[in-house]
Design a protein around this nucleic acid. Sequence first.
DNA 1: TAGATTGTTAATCGATTAACAATC
DNA 2: TAGATTGTTAATCGATTAACAATC
Lengths: 216, 216
Amino acid sequence: MNKSTLISMAVVRRLPKYYRYLAELLRRDIDRISSKELSEKIGFTASQIRQDLNNFGDFGQQGYGYNVKELHREISKILGLYKEYNTVVVGAGNLGQAIANYSGFSKQGFNLKGIFDKNPKLIGIKINDIEIKDIDMLPEFIDNNSIDIGILCLPRNSAQEVANVLVEKGVKGIWNFAPADIVVPEEIAVENVHLSESLMVLSYRLNETNLLNENK
Amino acid sequence: MNKSTLISMAVVRRLPKYYRYLAELLRRDIDRISSKELSEKIGFTASQIRQDLNNFGDFGQQGYGYNVKELHREISKILGLYKEYNTVVVGAGNLGQAIANYSGFSKQGFNLKGIFDKNPKLIGIKINDIEIKDIDMLPEFIDNNSIDIGILCLPRNSAQEVANVLVEKGVKGIWNFAPADIVVPEEIAVENVHLSESLMVLSYRLNETNLLNENK
DNA sequence: TAGATTGTTAATCGATTAACAATC
DNA sequence: TAGATTGTTAATCGATTAACAATC
């Protein structure tokens, strides 16, 4: 069957959650689950779960449900988690250092190869056994280490400039923590983590009820 | 006018982006903008921009557009950014420390009052001038410091447990960095930042084109 | 076989876009 | 006033939910 229709991002963004819940079921040695049972745990409708999974293939079996181990493996394939990726962190401030230090990502195949900053006070410091290098060395480093993903932990102003370098040097994806919208060719994947935007949404919701009363 | 209909989250999640672009226009001393011009910069349709803003009031003027300064101020009010919030970070690992250190949040009125961890090796260390305290002291601390927001930077297993404490002690919102879905009463605002999920989505998109070819 | 549960089509719901009258 | 641009209604599009025949 040709599945060459593009899957909507709404569906894609639910996949990691399926993956996480299936991992939990695996840990608990549960080896089958129906869309109805999964629905109760995960909070999506059973109908939505079946629709979502059917975008990628026929993973279930009528009258039985889904095999947890198999479905978990399939979703890991869909997400590309069985592969290895080489990454660099650009910007070694607090956030950059935290991301560089986080070992969970390397367990999932995201291997940190380099950390870069322009601040001379940071260059030379070791984070997670990797020495922070001068950002001027970034282009050459990408050439020599087949870097797949650039992780931007930079201030607003320098994000686009570094993104341009990453794209030019052939990086395939950018994980962007900078509070800026970067512009790249459409074949480059960009995933934004805008922390301050998330915090603003939280702030909005904290005041939601009040707002309604104030405006009457 | 009574605006007491609930605004959809799709709209709310766009507000911080409006806020950010308006701040940029302010920095550049631009004092008016039409939905059409803003559309070109921000990438939403002009129609959507007008629809979005109209959920909150009549901020524009026919034939003129929007006053940048005024609109920026209105959105900051809608988002509750003119207020001050007291926060605690729970979990002082790499990510918790990075969040605690980030000064940008305090500039926006989110004031860090305490940092907690259960690891004796971390307790006593100062981050951003605040000493990491034993997590056992969290309930009393919330009572004495009118904490509004709890920031969870914990492993999967302990997130729900700490969330329960926060809710019981009257925190109004939770900014959740733990890779777990926490369950709280509906009047408590929860905003999730699931970094590993974001990375998985990036991974998916890195492989998107390949997937299509493989499945034919 | 009977019961359970999927895969999939059709119906509904919600969000986005288009259109244009109102009005600055 | 004429031109520009909003506010808002109507049309379209896309995503979610419901329903049920297929089938394990």
